[in-house]
Design a protein around this nucleic acid. Structure first.
Lengths: 103, 103
DNA sequence: GAAGTCACTTACCAATAGTGAGTTGCTAAC
DNA sequence: GTTAGCAACTCACTATTGGTAAGTGACTTC
């Protein structure tokens, strides 16, 4: 079912938050790391690569000295984040349920 | 961040699909198993327990012979599924991206 | 009395995630 | 001219999660 696949892809650990950071303005590796609190370098690298492969962000190497690497959300990536807004609303409304409740 | 926690809780493997099945009318264990294609008994048990602990479904034992066990989505559970509708729309729109694309 | 259903549980292995340290190529400070 | 630092990674190791398959006990149907 598409619903399940979509939800589980977007809901993969860190993926949504990384995309969200991109939409919020993050571009460089360190910026993403600052936005996405708690993620390790290893997983940030891995997720950025996945999101690139899946077409949600674009990777661009700027040959300055030292090189800059920019990760920019694509059109679909931004649309996906937009589609997640109601879920964000729900989360804020039920703050205690998701922030205080057991795993 | 709430957004991340919410998304990752809903996006945990099988969780969203199970809740969705409940909203779609599933009540008994075997019904959920039929709705959520591909899930194993082990994980269905585990997820139903988690969803109950988190307050998304209610477990009720009906002392017939043999016993029936009914899992019913709560109000918040149903609201969560409703909040996920736009994501479902997005998924259907970008079908090929999520169904054909690389992991 | 053999086979089947419901709602699980157990054991085992594979895949994914977390932690922490190391690396390369540069610049700036002491 | 060694030391320190940053950006963007990579590697090795452990812990957690998920998948597969089989088993269980109370009951029903043929």
């Amino acid at each position: 079912m598409i619903f399940r696949r979509t939800l589980e892809r977007a809901g993969r650990r860190w993926s949504g938050a990384i995309l969200y950071a991109g939409v919020a303005g993050a571009r460089r590796f360190v910026e993403y790391r600052r936005y996405v609190h708690g993620i390790s370098d290893r997983l940030l690298t891995q997720r950025l690569r996945e999101l690139e492969r899946q077409g949600f962000i674009e990777r661009e190497v700027v040959p300055t000295m030292p090189v800059q690497i920019l990760y920019t959300p694509t059109e679909v990536g931004a649309e996906l984040v937009a589609a997640l807004q109601p879920l964000g609303e729900w989360g804020r409304k039920h703050y205690d349920l998701i922030e205080k409740a057991p795993e």
